[in-house]
């Protein structure tokens, strides 16, 4: 360091103060120093190739992570059986869940496949009126319901592997609630929402990752849920692009149910790409 250093060590400056001489000098110096580099002729092609590679890698990773997530959920679901005396919650809160209260919901006919090997292909494709550009397949035996909330950001529709309550069971059409009675063990209720917030749209657009564990919401806890998964997919129409959020509220999730949630998420697609005409929601 010499006495001619332009950033002199003893100069008092305030970080939030007005632009100082040294800051102005730094501006000039950076402009002088940053070189004007030549651009490769095939820059655009390289960018497009990178984007295509990234997309392929994410799809492959998504498949792998979905499988891993299913196995993880199965292990966590089995945790109480493995360590029944554990008083503390695991990552999904399963171990600390209170003793199951007697279910008030009517027992469902065996709507969900039982056993770890029972995950089969999905059933019919449906679309909801509110966001008709989205098509999704429903696991066999599950029930669907077109939701009647005023705002598709609150809910577009519901899938569940147990009976769905009348939508009027929810207090009003502005406040979200899950239209099911108390979830039974292995129960799942899935809600689709339209994401409109620009920041969230930017974050999730073209996302292809599997559904991930998220913090339990009070709406899910209110129906006895003890685990929640969330995932996003993008659907397009001729004029617009929509990001769909899938929120799965689960109670003591089995491997089968977790895999079904991932299957449903993977099945979300744009209406135009679907050759067979989708059926309307049932149940």
């Amino acid at each position: 360091m010499t006495g001619t250093d332009f950033l002199e060590p003893d100069r008092p400056d305030g970080p939030g103060g007005a632009d100082t001489g040294e800051e102005q000098e730094l501006r000039i110096l950076l402009q002088q120093a940053a070189p004007h580099l030549p651009a490769p002729e095939d820059r655009i092609q390289r960018i497009l190739a990178r984007a295509a590679r990234t997309r392929r890698r994410r799809r492959a990773a998504g498949l792998g992570a979905g499988l891993t997530g299913g196995l993880l959920a199965a292990v966590l679901a089995a945790a109480p059986a493995i360590a029944p005396s554990s008083p503390h919650a695991g990552p999904l809160g399963v171990a600390a869940a209170p003793a199951p209260a007697p279910s008030t919901a009517a027992p469902s006919p065996s709507s969900a496949p039982e056993g770890p090997d029972a995950v089969g292909p999905l059933g019919v494709a449906i679309s909801f009126r509110t966001v008709s550009e989205m098509v999704v397949n429903v696991p066999k035996g599950w029930l669907t319901q077109e939701n009647d909330w005023a705002n598709p950001e609150v809910s577009i529709g519901t899938l569940a592997n147990q009976p769905i309550a009348d939508p009027t069971a929810c207090a009003d059409k502005e406040t979200f609630c899950l239209p099911v009675g108390r979830l039974r063990s292995g129960g799942a209720v899935l809600t689709f929402r339209l994401v409109k917030d620009p920041t969230r749209v930017a974050e999730y657009v073209e996302t292809s990752t599997p559904a991930e564990v998220t913090t339990l919401t009070k709406e899910c806890a209110a129906v006895g849920g003890d685990a929640e998964l969330i995932g996003h997919r993008t659907v397009t129409s001729t004029t617009s692009l929509s990001v769909i959020e899938l929120d799965a509220c689960l109670r003591e999730p089995t491997t089968v149910v977790t895999q079904q949630v991932q299957q449903v998420l993977e099945s979300i697609r744009s209406f135009e790409r679907q050759s067979p005409t989708p059926e309307g929601p049932t149940g």
Binding site: D5, F6, P15, E22, L29
Partner: peptide, 14 residues
């Protein structure tokens, strides 16, 4: 700025 003081070129550049 504190870290850069004394490490960047001298006033002749300016």
């Amino acid at each position: 700025l504190a870290a850069l003081r004394g490490k960047l070129p001298v006033r002749e550049l300016m």
